[in-house]
Design a protein around this nucleic acid. Structure first.
Lengths: 208, 208
DNA sequence: TCATCCAGTTAACAACTGTTCTCTGGATTT
DNA sequence: AAATCCAGAGAACAGTTGTTAACTGGATGA
């Protein structure tokens, strides 16, 4: 059911993607609020005014980056939380998944961590919306687990937010460890694993 | 034992503080990496070149802001964790303390949350160092608690980091709720309380 | 085939940036 | 009282920024 794009539309999307990629690269050493429109177009090799054919402003481009970075992550998260194996195995797998994602898309992870509390309001809101969606989805998956018997919806959402925040913290630690040694990364894995374990224990004894 | 500063030194410190205050104000709507030196001096009402009498660069000023925002917080944290009352009361008091701090110094809290993963490396490192110190101090206080019997140093530090991160998340939520209604703030209190409670439960059953 | 469209170009704008060098005048020290 | 110091001012520098307007030329659709 794929409709082949015309030459013009295809070229336009190519340039648009080049702008997004260039911006993401430039954002490794600065924040979005200091990223210049000309800086981005210069990196791509197009005229500054071409930018306006794709985005109204840098903030607009930032919102598009949020969608690119988080939009495709929902199914991955759902299946990770769902999993039918033991709690300990699930933790190990989740952390392995985070580590792998940071390895594969470090710039996206950095962007989200940086701009979650960054200086550009529309981007902050876009990230917050995505994270709220994550928490809702995690909450919905948790509800299916027999261990969630007797849990209120509020408490499930509370736990889901804890998980989502913990995921981001862990991703950020893996990111810092990317330029470090293998031991650095192993230490992050150990730390994150034990923190998740402690939260799981808290979850297990919550109903008391 | 206070040595009265000379007129010149006093005036210099006054200007320096004015620069810090102005910068903090301007940072409510942008990130440090986009803050201009001229922007700051203009807000204070001094010549751009006067900036160099106090800071080598904007990054340098940022590091000074980190010290101002977090430097004086260490004793407060120590005493909060120490506390001799029940776990539930300790949680309520800690969260109340965070809420009060956000009310009193919203710009400082915003600055730390924003620049923790921000685009200016020296500032990121300064914040990280301070947070590591917090975690070490919390860890040292936890070690005194009889409930920490049988805990390894690594595990204490793991828990301490969890507490510190949770504090920052909570502070950030209170900050968002500052412009909201009283119910918004109450909801944050409820959420943070239950998350802390769950972590406490996890801590209590850790040795299993 | 011919008219229309539209992604990207070119040129120009006023406004802004960090940094340098030189200078001033009141505080400080001798 | 005289010499020194030094926080801040002033002017100028080359480079940068976002945004506007009018344009070109290949793809598109009638």
């Amino acid at each position: 059911m794929s409709h082949t794009l015309g030459i013009r539309q295809a070229q336009k999307q190519k340039t648009r993607q080049a702008l997004l990629d260039a911006a993401l690269g430039l954002l490794e050493e600065q924040s979005l609020s200091s990223l210049g429109l000309r800086e981005v177009t210069r990196a791509v090799g197009v005229a500054p005014t071409a930018f306006y054919r794709h985005f109204r402003s840098i903030a607009d481009l930032g919102v598009a980056l949020v969608e690119e970075a988080l939009g495709s992550l929902h199914p991955m998260i759902r299946t990770t939380v769902t999993a039918a194996d033991s709690s300990e195995e699930r933790i190990a797998r989740a952390i392995q998944l985070i580590a792998g994602h940071v390895d594969a898309y470090p710039a996206h992870v950095r962007f989200i961590a940086r701009e979650r509390h960054g200086g550009v309001q529309p981007v902050r809101e876009a990230i917050r919306d995505q994270l709220v969606r994550f928490a809702q989805e995690v909450s919905a998956e948790l509800a299916k687990d027999p261990e969630s018997a007797g849990w209120s919806e509020d408490d499930l959402l509370m736990l889901a937010h804890l998980y989502v925040d913990q995921m981001l913290i862990t991703a950020s630690l893996f990111l810092e460890a990317l330029e470090g040694t293998a031991e650095d990364r192993e230490r992050v894995t150990q730390l994150a694993t034990r923190q998740m374990r402690l939260i799981s224990i808290g979850r297990h004894h919550w109903r008391d």
